[in-house]
Design a protein around this nucleic acid. Structure first.
Length: 113
DNA sequence: GCATTGACGAAGG
DNA sequence: CCCTTCGCCAATG
């Protein structure tokens, strides 16, 4: 049986991120119930290479909107190129209007009162 | 088995 | 406002 854990939750949430939007490690962590486990999110994405379906990790940036994980992709431009391909403007490894395109699961998936 | 690191974030000084 | 420290959990050395 596939052992579901924090990592699997991260993958699931990231796959829910619509194209043209980005999310943050903290947002995912917070959505999972551990706002301070943002490091685990990054760690989980570190293993996303062997996960199927492929996880759009390029839509996950740090809370500054910086492509902090670009170094973990095939090339240093894979992340920004993927984002640009989805309509996300990236300038100097920083997402433009990051706050505007931020897709927070805790907000977008918030249980409507 | 303990110490350090890791694609982070918030809080404290 | 900038820098430092803690927290969080897992993996690696």
């Amino acid at each position: 049986m596939t052992e579901f854990s924090f990592f699997d939750d991260v993958y699931a949430v990231v796959r829910l991120v619509p194209a043209g939007r980005v999310t943050t490690y903290g947002a995912i962590a917070k959505y999972l119930g551990s706002a301070r486990s943002s490091r685990m999110v990054g760690w989980a994405l570190n293993g996303s290479h062997s996960v199927v379906p492929k996880v759009p990790a390029h839509r996950v940036v740090n809370r500054n909107g910086i492509l902090s994980g670009k170094h973990h992709f095939e090339t240093f431009t894979t992340m920004c190129d993927s984002l640009k391909a989805e309509g996300v403007l990236v300038d100097d490894d920083v997402v433009v209007d990051f706050k505007n395109i931020l897709w927070d699961p805790s907000l977008e998936l918030t249980i409507e009162r």
